[in-house]
Amino acid sequence: MKVLVTVKRVIDYNVKIRVKPDGSDVDLTNVKMAVNPFCEIAVEEAVRLKEKGIASEIVVVSVGGSEAQEQLRTALALGADRAILVESTANTESLNVAKLLAKVVEQEQPSLVIMGKQAIDSDNNQTGQMLAALCDMPQATFASEVSVADNSVTVTREIDGGLQTLSLQLPAIVTTDLRLNEPRYASLPNIMKAKCKPLATVTPDDLGVTLSAHTQLLGVNPPPQRSAGVKVKSVAELVDKLKNEAKVI
């Protein structure tokens, strides 16, 4: 069974985001970049399927600039078999990414596509859903448990107030939630092997996709600075402050 996994290059989740002085975008100069954490969970899940003997090949795909090769190499070091970079820096909004991925899915014909439920940079949470629609495949989002048997995948989903279990006919698309697994650390031998694994680069033109802009970024504002809290000495003081300063009771 072939599994296709998508990864996105984003700012490392430990980095404090800085906005450019003119507010036009996030400042990426000298900022540490990493694999989107949800995508890393998707890679881990695929690798576990391979270790169980269920998946036979893991293909990892990214849409982005040539720098995204770093993240593809990381996915290869974690256990993916080969990588495809769709090199495109313009108009990489969700719908366009989904259209590009749909072409890759068409070419690769995977039985299962595992994606992060969202990327931590723009928090869109829609590429997986769009891809499912474009490929006309069943989808299970927010997976916290995935098991594949015969020709179907059973997915436990985290939904408001509880869990939902779905069974999907393969080929299908699964998007991962945080609690699906804990990704491993790339081992040094695997990092070294990753260098020799195949990494192909294609362009939107190669895939026959024309990207048009549907959205426009108008500006980015940092969140307002939180002021420090105060320690109160007694319950009476707390009540007083809630009543007279915060005016919430």
């Binding site: 990493a34 770093e70 190499r73 990381t74 070091a77 650390y185 790339a186 081992s187 040094l188 990092i191 070294m192 990753a194 260098k195």
Partner: peptide, 8 residues
């Protein structure tokens, strides 16, 4: 390789 070792 060093970059990935550092990350890991």
């Amino acid at each position: 390789i060093q970059q990935m070792l550092k990350d890991s």
